[in-house]
Amino acid sequence: MIPLSYYVILSALVFVTGVVGVLIRRNIIIILLSVELMLNATNINFVAFSYYLQNVAGQVFVFFALTVAAAEVAVGLAIIIALYRSKSSINVDEFRLLKW
């Protein structure tokens, strides 16, 4: 039987990869992909705990996380298209409208 901590470590590694991706990349699409990585990392955690505690609540929460991820992708990609239309670039450095 695989120890639960292995799953926690795996999901921590994936989550941290997502965090680093959000911080270091300049392409807005890759930033959204990194957010997907983070959501998947939490899902792995939820399912692992759901199995080890023999409780179905974790899997139900993964279901809801999936819903939120789908909504996030739809809205996020629409925002990217709107941004690209106004600036014809998706480089985050170009968007400094709120900067003084």
């Binding site: 941290v16 965090v19 270091i24």
Partner: peptide, 26 residues
């Protein structure tokens, strides 16, 4: 285009910190 943000060192440092923390906790 150029792929990495100027915040690359900060991001890497933060990532390393979080990884170490989680591994310690685990």
């Amino acid at each position: 285009e150029e792929r990495y943000h100027a915040q690359f060192p900060i991001g890497a440092l933060l990532g390393l910190t979080i990884v170490t923390e989680v591994l310690l906790l685990a």
